[in-house]
């Protein structure tokens, strides 16, 4: 079986017409877009929670932490019910499209990114608080400097989000439908091959997913390292 997995992996990589790159590309596009949108929302939400005090703040905090453990299937179901033709947003015609998958993954990872970034921003913001007060910085300038100085830690948060979204199958298979050439991504393809009993193919796809995750993480941690060496500590 090991031989078979290796040869399947190589065969997959060699045969450009296997649709592999299409599936890989869609995975990256869907998860990448979801992470970008989640970061836009999550960093703002995390930043607000980290730097302001208001009623209900700790309730939101608890809710965010709890929703980090939300099963992807449940998120998928919620999005399915919203986007279904019989649901409130059915008129958009988004179910079984990559957009629906992006929406589901955005909902899935925004709490993760918000909760993790809140912790990072709050720690740094508190650390800088007295110095910034002494400098008489405006609230906006304090936030800007904190976010900038936390950027590499926040990049790690984004990577955690990318990891969760690239690896989840529960949400995308429900709202995407695993349609060939349209909404099939790495994880749903793996689920399909598993259900066909083609385990070597499923594992070959898994190996490719892992390789991609390794590549992305290596690239970003190299970037991170060189940046740290330069000025960030």
């Amino acid at each position: 079986m090991q031989d078979s997995i290796l040869s399947r992996t190589l065969w997959l990589l060699k045969s450009a017409d296997s649709g592999l790159w299409e599936v890989v590309g869609l995975s990256l596009r869907v998860s990448g877009t979801a992470v970008l949108i989640s970061c836009a929302f999550g960093f703002i939400l995390g930043g607000v929670l980290a730097t302001t005090r208001f009623r209900g703040r700790s309730a939101i905090h608890i809710f965010l932490n709890a929703s980090m453990s939300m099963p992807p299937v449940v998120v998928g179901l919620i999005v399915y019910m919203l986007l279904s033709r019989s649901g409130p947003l059915g008129w958009l015609g988004l179910l079984y499209t990559p957009t629906a998958m992006i929406i589901a993954q955005t909902l899935l990872i925004t709490p993760l990114i918000a909760a993790l970034s809140r912790q990072i921003i709050e720690d740094l913001f508190n650390e800088y608080a007295e110095q910034f007060a002494s400098m008489r910085l405006s609230f906006f300038k304090k936030i800007r400097a904190t976010l900038w100085d936390a950027r590499f830690s926040l990049l790690t948060v984004a990577l955690a989000g990318l990891g969760r979204s690239l690896s989840e199958v529960g949400a995308v298979i429900i709202v995407g439908g695993n349609i060939e050439h349209l909404t099939r991504v790495m994880t749903t393809a793996i689920a399909l091959e598993t259900s066909k009993g083609d385990l070597p193919m499923a594992l070959a796809l898994g190996a490719i997913l892992l390789t991609i995750a390794l590549l992305i993480n290596t690239l970003l941690s190299m970037l991170n390292l060189s940046a740290r060496r330069f000025a960030y500590a």
């Binding site: 007060a133 400098m135 000025a231």
Partner: peptide, 27 residues
């Protein structure tokens, strides 16, 4: 109010334990 104070007087403080930004010395 600290706003008024900073208008009235330019002031700065050095703390016992300095909090430096996560940047280069120059930055």
């Amino acid at each position: 109010s600290s706003q008024k104070q900073s208008e009235a007087q330019k002031q700065a403080m050095v703390f016992q334990k300095p909090t430096l930004l996560r940047r280069s010395v120059k930055a």
